Amino acid sequence: MTCLKGQFLTPDGFLLGTVTVAPQGRIAAVEGVPQSEAQARSSGLPLYLPGFIDTHVHGGGGADTMEGGEAVRQLARTHARHGTTSLLATTMTAPLDDIRAALQALAPACATRGAQEARVLGVHLEGPYISPGRLGAQPDYVKPLALSELLALHALAPIRLITLAPELPGHLAVIPDLVAQGMRVQIGHSNGGYEDGVAALQAGAHGFTHLFNAMSALHHREPGMVGAALAHADHAELIPDLIHVHPGAIRTALRAIPRLFCVTDSTSASGMPDGEYRLGRHTVTKCLGGVRLADGTLAGSTLTMDQALRNLVNALGLSLADASRRCSTYAADYLGLNDRGRIAVGAHADVVELNADLRLQATYVEGERIECHAG
């Protein structure tokens, strides 16, 4: 048994006490006395939060999901050192042969977690079923969605989440079939309007991919896809690097979408020095804290989840408990995982240890301690 001592954020609030981790990597006991958040943060003791869950990870540590295999394990190790305990390996729009090859290569990482790695829960398929008018940094290999083709991809590696543009022919009709297969359907890279977004949600779509980015904007006479999200969504991804979305827009989304949750949309440049990196078939440049194509288009991010948490607390003024839910619990619930994203008996021992400045000290992935980057 491993015993952790300090201030723990549980579903019932902060506790000063101990958490016991069984050898199998699950939480066996949570014991302590209730604390206010102010007491917990001022105590000088380690702060333990649920491990971060990132549903949108293209790369990290110089490795890109589309390379498959060892690249996915490298990005899983990189993000674990920044507090991510589980993630979805996220693809890029590409020719189907490239996507097939990537899924075949990353399937072993979905089946078995290696030492010092975040758990790879499955795949977020971001494209090729998106609008050519809202590519963002996606290459232009878009195509109509054929259910048989998608199920063949799903057989190679588990697709937990799929991004699609609902306004494209046939996409709205196929959403119920995707949901029946256990996939979460997200609206994104879409040029559709408000009505398209509402219709997709009514058909069973669950949320929105990197809200505000690569979708039709809000106008008071044409609410667009952003308007559909703000008016009707319970869940949506958001990239809180303070580059992709203005803090004012983030605050608007926080007031409108109850379970808005954070993602990194990270690239292979995450955790790496400035320079050139791969993003699918693109070459991207990391500089000044961002990642861009040659024409200046934002191309994913260098964000890590520990920095996302600090941005929510320090720049946007959220409580630590609220920020934690948006970096962990809401994503777990969204994916239907009641044994992750919370410090509770029976849950996986996925925990991050922070100091008083919210700098990461260690990550525990299913009970395994991983030393972290404190920056």
Rank of each mutant, 00 (worst) to 15 (best):
F261N: 13
S301N: 11
R26P: 00
Q202F: 05
K143Q: 15
M183I: 09
L335D: 05
T2D: 00
I250M: 15
T78L: 02
L75M: 15
L318D: 02
I239V: 14
R184H: 09
L293Y: 07
A199Q: 08
G367P: 04
L230A: 04
G193T: 05
G367K: 07
D140H: 14
F14H: 12
D350T: 03
T363H: 03
F8K: 11
D333A: 07
R134G: 04
T264A: 12
D322P: 00
N314F: 11
R340K: 14
H189K: 14
A115P: 09
G207K: 12
L164D: 06
H206D: 14
A111T: 11
A101I: 07
A231H: 13
L242P: 00
E67T: 13
L125V: 08
G17R: 09
G193Q: 07
A294L: 10
R160D: 04
S266W: 02
A308N: 11
V120R: 02
L4C: 10
V198H: 02
Y334W: 09
N338K: 09
R369D: 07
A253Q: 04
D322T: 02
G193A: 10
G188S: 09
G290P: 01
C287I: 05
P223T: 14
A256D: 00
A231K: 14
N191V: 03
D322R: 00
G197V: 06
I162Q: 04
P273W: 08
V345A: 01
G61W: 07
Q7N: 05
A28C: 01
F14P: 08
Y330P: 09
V72S: 08
T112I: 13
G62D: 10
N311A: 09
L254M: 04
H220Y: 05
I243L: 06
G280F: 04
A294P: 02
D12R: 15
S43C: 10
E368Q: 06
A40F: 00
R73V: 03
A229V: 06
G227N: 03
P132C: 03
C262A: 15
P108G: 04
V291N: 00
M272H: 01
R134W: 06
P273G: 12
R292E: 00
I257R: 15
L87M: 15
T285D: 00
G13D: 06
G188C: 05
A157Y: 01
T252C: 09
L335A: 12
L211E: 04
D339K: 13
K5G: 05
V142P: 06
L103Y: 07
P11R: 12
D98R: 12
R81E: 13
I370M: 10
D339Q: 14
L335K: 10
G170L: 03
H56E: 02
G341H: 13
I370T: 09
L337H: 01
G61L: 08
A111Q: 14
H189S: 08
I53T: 10
V30N: 07
